[in-house]
Design a protein around this nucleic acid. Structure first.
Length: 315
DNA sequence: CTCCAGGCAGTGT
DNA sequence: ACACTGCATGGA
């Protein structure tokens, strides 16, 4: 199978989109080359930067039909990000600079169940550790995915999966609710989920039994959607917002975590300490239907700038 | 060693 | 309504 190439794409930067904290199922091969596992498929993807704002995107070993069926939706390529950016900038002109620093971030349209479990795992953990636990869970309970030929070639092999690939790349899809229903508390602790193990079990049971069903969630308005999600143990305000934004593509959601609180108190409350739910309500009012996009640009900004300051302070 | 990490549930006022 | 604490695990 040959590659599918999307030429001269704007508002798309693979690295920033994957590494802005919304997704945990990718492995980096090189600066602009990644392996992503989603929708039960392993994607070997590469970006060729033409300029600061334009790229070719190479979907290795992918035919056009698969691109249309899976990846166009996953990477949100039908959304006009210049319009999104215009609406954000209209709501707060100061964010223009933040967007200019990371103009290629997109909100991935990820799968609901995987997003739910992943963000339950995310609480009180750092991103590399979240990735590791999600990978452990996938390897223990998920199905193995097919490794494309281009990936073997990238590792110097011909067609067989080498040790190097197995080591660098997760080759297991995230498990379905049915598959995860076989997990015990001890299994999940072996995956290093720690105290989140019972939360995962509750989420799996509610999804598998239909108490929390994706189709029903999508029918509900955002308030009821959020309430239903929060009926799961281990799902609070922040995790519910993340599941809505990343796993159900509700772009009016605005997750507020420590980073978001940090930057919002600086930008909007003159450094005063404001509760997170108040911040969330205010930002949703300000940014409306594009709040989720605004949050993602701000998150990247907070992590880069805030992170640097902290590292300078401690070393 | 201690402290903290994309929080949340449980318990106390 | 709000403040405080414990929580598994690993890295700084």
């Amino acid at each position: 199978m040959s590659d599918f190439v999307l030429e001269n794409v704007s508002d798309f930067h693979l690295k920033d989109t994957l590494e802005c904290g919304q997704c945990f199922r990718f492995d980096r091969l090189a600066e602009d080359e990644y392996v992503i596992v989603a929708k039960g498929v392993l994607l070997h993807i590469e970006e060729e930067r033409l300029s600061a704002f334009r790229s070719n995107i190479i979907f290795h070993d992918t035919d056009e039909d698969t691109y249309i069926r899976l990846w166009r939706d996953y990477f949100d390529l039908d959304t006009d990000y210049s319009a999104v950016k215009a609406r954000i900038t209209e709501a707060d002109p100061r964010i223009a600079g933040v967007i200019r620093d990371n103009p290629g971030i997109r909100i991935l349209r990820q799968e609901f169940f995987e997003t739910l479990i992943s963000f339950i795992i995310s609480q009180n953990k750092q991103i590399p550790q979240i990735k590791q636990v999600v990978r452990n869970v996938s390897e223990m309970f998920g199905s193995m995915v097919e490794v494309p030929k281009s990936l073997c070639a990238a590792f110097g092999g011909t067609s067989e999966v080498t040790e190097a690939i197995a080591d660098r790349v997760c080759r297991y899809a995230f498990p379905t609710a049915e598959q995860l229903s076989h997990a015990t508390d001890a299994d999940l602790r072996d995956c290093k989920a720690g105290f989140r193990a019972p939360y995962i079990l509750d989420a799996v049971e509610k999804v598998r039994s239909g108490v929390v069903a994706e189709t029903e969630l999508r029918r509900l308005d955002t308030a009821d959607m959020r309430t239903l999600l929060m009926s799961i143990k281990g799902v609070g305000e922040k995790v519910a917002s993340c599941v809505m934004l990343y796993g159900l593509s509700v772009y009016s959601a605005f997750p507020v975590d420590v980073w978001m609180k940090r930057i919002c108190t600086e930008m909007y409350y003159d450094g005063r300490d404001v509760p997170k739910d108040k911040i969330e309500a205010d930002m949703c009012e300000r940014f409306g239907a594009v709040a989720g996009f605004a949050q993602q640009y701000l998150f990247m900004y907070a992590r880069e700038h805030g992170g640097k300051c902290f590292r300078r302070g401690t070393t």
